[in-house]
C-alpha cells in the first residue's frame, strides 16, 4: 500500500506542476481507496474562498477541510455549514485568531496583496500543529505582460518542553510564471532576411514548479503568543531562503540547461580555435 502511494507521489514529482490538480484527481479516481493517503501527502495550489460571515477571502486546502466543507479562519465557520465540523479548542482558537492577524501583516509586508490564512489544530499528546498559507496571483493588464502565482504552505508542529518549544516546519512553495510573446509586441526577435520579410512569430514560456524544505528548531516561550513570534521568524527565514533557491533553480538552472542544449556560440569555430591555440602553444614550447 505504501508502495502504491509512493509511486503516485513519484509520478506527481515528474509530471508537469501545471497539471497537478488534474493528475491528482485522475489518481484519486483510479484508486479511490488511497485518496486520503494521497491528498494528505501532496501539495496542490491553494483555492480562494470567501467567508460568508465577514466577506473576507481565505485559503482552502486539505488542512481546513472536513468532508466537502472548508473552515474559514476569520469566522471559524464551515462552508457549506456542517454540524460537527472539527474546530480548535477555545484556547487554541484564541491563538489562531492572533496568528491570523500576525501573518496578515507579514503578507502585506512581503506580498503587498494576496491572501493569507492560518489554521491550528490540537494534537493528542497535548501539543498543537498548524499550517500557514499564503497566496498571491498576478493578473497582467496586457496579454504580453507576464502572469504568475505564488503559493506557500508551511506546516508545523509545536511541542512544549518546559520553557522551550520544539518546532518542526515543512515548507512548500509553488510558483508559476507565464509569458506570452508575439512579433507585434515590438520587443526582441524581429530578424530580417537580407531581402526578404521578417519572421513572424508567437509563443509562450511557462516556468512552474514546487519546492519543499524542512527545518527543526528550539525556541524559548514566555506565553502562548511566543509560538507566533517563534513560528513567524522561522517561516520568514525559510521563505527568504527558499525564495533565493527558487531564483537560482527557476531562473538559473533551467536557463543553463537550455543554453546547454543549444549553444549560442559556433561550436565548430570554438573547436577550431582551441586546436589552433594548442598548435601555437606547442610551437612556442618548441
Amino acid at each position: 500500500m505504501a508502495e502504491l502511494v509512493d509511486s503516485m507521489l513519484d509520478l506527481l514529482r515528474r509530471l508537469p506542476p501545471t497539471k497537478i490538480e488534474d493528475n491528482v484527481s485522475a489518481l484519486v479516481q483510479i484508486s479511490p481507496d488511497y485518496a486520503d493517503d494521497l491528498l494528505g501527502n501532496v501539495d496542490q495550489p491553494l483555492k480562494l474562498k470567501v467567508d460568508k460571515a465577514t466577506g473576507k477571502e481565505y485559503l482552502a486546502c486539505d488542512y481546513n477541510r472536513d468532508g466537502e466543507s472548508y473552515r474559514s479562519p476569520w469566522s471559524n465557520e464551515y462552508d457549506p455549514p456542517i454540524d460537527d465540523g472539527t474546530v480548535p479548542s477555545p484556547k487554541l482558537r484564541k491563538l489562531e485568531i492572533a496568528a491570523n492577524e500576525a501573518f496578515d501583516m507579514y503578507r502585506e509586508m512581503y506580498f503587498e496583496g494576496g491572501v493569507s490564512s492560518v489554521f491550528l489544530w490540537d494534537l493528542d499528546d497535548g501539543g498543537f500543529a498548524g499550517v500557514v498559507l499564503l497566496k498571491k496571483t498576478l493578473s497582467p493588464a496586457l496579454p504580453s505582460e507576464p502572469s504568475g502565482s505564488w503559493d506557500s504552505i508551511h506546516v508545523f508542529e509545536a511541542a512544549e518542553r518546559g520553557r522551550q518549544s520544539h518546532y518542526k516546519l515543512t515548507s512548500t512553495i509553488m510558483l508559476q510564471l507565464i509569458t506570452r510573446r508575439e512579433s507585434s509586441d515590438g520587443r526582441a526577435n524581429n530578424t530580417t532576411g537580407k531581402d526578404g520579410d521578417a519572421w513572424k512569430h508567437d509563443g509562450e514560456v511557462s516556468l512552474s514548479g514546487s519546492m519543499t524544505r524542512q527545518a527543526e528548531q528550539d525556541h524559548p516561550i514566555q506565553d502562548s503568543t511566543s509560538h507566533i513570534t517563534n513560528m513567524g521568524r522561522m517561516i520568514e527565514d525559510q521563505e527568504i531562503k527558499m525564495r533565493n533557491l527558487l531564483q537560482e533553480v527557476y531562473f538559473g538552472k533551467t536557463r543553463d540547461v537550455v543554453f546547454d542544449l543549444r549553444s549560442m556560440e559556433d561550436l565548430e569555430k570554438a573547436r577550431r580555435q582551441r586546436e589552433l591555440q594548442k598548435e601555437l602553444v606547442g610551437f612556442i614550447k618548441r
Partner: peptide, 12 residues
Amino acid sequence: NVQLETSHQSSI
C-alpha cells in the same frame, strides 16, 4: 519539481 515548457511558432 520545476519545469520549463516553451512553445514558439514562426513563419517567413
